[in-house]
Write a protein that binds this DNA or RNA. Sequence first.
DNA 1: ATAATACACGAACATACGTTCTGTGTCAAG
DNA 2: CTTGACACAGAACGTATGTTCGTGTATTAT
Lengths: 241, 241
Amino acid sequence: MARRSQGLSERHHKIMEFLTKFQETNGYSPSIRQIGDSIGVKSTSLVDYYLNQLQEMALIEREDRISRSIRVLQPVYATPTITGMVGDAVHKAGNMIADMISIPLAGRIVASAPIPMPTSDLSYYDAESSVDIARSLLPAHDISDLFALEVSGDSMIDAMINDGDIVVMKKAQSANNGEMVAVWLDDKDETTLKYFYKEPNRIRLQPANPNMGPIYVDNPKSLRIMGKVVMVIRQVKSVAA
Amino acid sequence: MARRSQGLSERHHKIMEFLTKFQETNGYSPSIRQIGDSIGVKSTSLVDYYLNQLQEMALIEREDRISRSIRVLQPVYATPTITGMVGDAVHKAGNMIADMISIPLAGRIVASAPIPMPTSDLSYYDAESSVDIARSLLPAHDISDLFALEVSGDSMIDAMINDGDIVVMKKAQSANNGEMVAVWLDDKDETTLKYFYKEPNRIRLQPANPNMGPIYVDNPKSLRIMGKVVMVIRQVKSVAA
DNA sequence: ATAATACACGAACATACGTTCTGTGTCAAG
DNA sequence: CTTGACACAGAACGTATGTTCGTGTATTAT
């Protein structure tokens, strides 16, 4: 339930500091009684009481009836000391682990050919052909079904995507208005990247470049949505057009 | 003292694997009995027996009479099994740490204003305003002097860069031919991103979009190079132009 | 053959540890 | 004033856990 002030009390703070430091120096968690000693509390029940609160605040995790099973989810360091800053850096690095996603590089996207899709969902973990991206950079929170393609040729230039760019896509068969999708146009026999808009009697495909006009597709069957574009990465080499 | 074969026996190996994995998945060490279960040993004393050996081999450390106090000094992953692949993935993630770069997000780039530069090299580590990028994605191997800017407005559209995009740049006062640079044009009073070409009597600024013509600058003094563009990231939201 | 050693089981033990219950004092809201 | 939420202590409880001991069986060395 809600505590009086939703912030951390002095006690909570001291406990978190102790947990963090103890973990780092010993490699395992302290016992309830050790925690009690560290903050000058005699009773184990009170410590348990606080630990439950910290757990509800998602600052720690612990397993029922298992000694020293406390996991510190968010390290708290005492006032800015050197060791504290080091620990903080370590922690940040640790977070970066969780915040990295390895996306399979499925192949190349060419205007004149359909999009190659990653074979299986349990895609083979090949370090050579994957793109590592920080989750914080991904707008989508749903990580599944992502794959990457390298753009070949200038044909996507109206989508402001150039040769050599990497597009991160999410598998999809349908799309909502305003989303950028990769579509295969039957009548044109080509793949393009456009913003998708479903209008009353037709579908409007809007290029990302506002200076260019839209394409209208009347027959929904002549259009196949391959995926939604999540991200575009351009590694600018020193070679110009 | 020395055991018959100084190498690890099968049992030792399995224990080390179990310890490593358990630690990584649970954040704390297993109990003696849990270890016994994992290797099919009924008696706790035997496990203790092996643990003492491992401790003498300096593979683990543990505190006397303290539960779950085992520290794994030298992680051991299984041979290519499922569990091994998990450990391998974790290991890979560990490598990814080293391959991540946190680039300060210095501000916004607007056509009508000069480029904001990061204040000091010991740039303040603010998690909220930084961009994490895998080093493998960066074409440049020189990591220093990198900073990131968020593009505001459509003015960079001839560089195929749109509103909301993030450009990663490297501080520079000069540029080589073919590099994309951010320049401030005195006579036009604006910042643009163009490919840089020094020609005999003038400087040619070529837009990334091949459909657009170049700009020529005769007086080198009216042009200030702010930095080289290293990378462009577009987080495609579901909002179109 | 004998002894020494490595490997294994199981029970008994002591205790470290998490959990629960009862009681007490404080303080603010009703 | 009463009520109830909150912060705390202490004790009692049950068990999870590390340790020790006694015993047995291979294997190896002497």
